[in-house]
């Protein structure tokens, strides 16, 4: 098993995105570091538009993720509804 990860700037928008990720990936580990938040999970992690919108209380485009993204690891797949990270193992 390998870990995929995503790191976001620690700010007000990311807080909702993190909440959504935690809800959609119950096994993920959230690590707080100075000015950033790193979330990692075994093999797969998903960010779902619907959950983020629910947390933010507004429309949210998956591509808005780029504004707060710091880094990620894993094969990316993105469409209108979600962004996922995975390793093929």
């Amino acid at each position: 098993m390998s870990k995929v990860y995503i790191a976001l700037q620690d700010n007000d928008e990311s807080r909702y995105i993190i909440e959504a990720i935690e809800e959609d990936n119950p096994d993920a580990t959230v690590i707080h570091q100075p000015a950033m938040i790193r979330i990692e999970n075994e093999n797969y992690l998903v960010v779902k538009r619907e959950t983020v919108e629910e947390k933010m209380g507004r429309d949210w485009d998956v591509q808005e993720l780029h504004l707060n993204l710091i880094t990620l690891g894993g094969n990316v797949d993105e469409d209108d509804d979600q962004l996922s990270l995975s390793w093929n193992v």
Binding site: Q9, A35, M36, H66, I70, T71, L72, N75
Partner: peptide
């Protein structure tokens, strides 16, 4: 520095994905 670094890094995340 932190801010320009993370702002650059938001592009880097895209570059990394492209690299893969």
């Amino acid at each position: 520095t932190c801010t320009f670094g993370f702002s650059a890094q938001s592009d880097e995340a895209r570059h990394m994905t492209l690299g893969l």
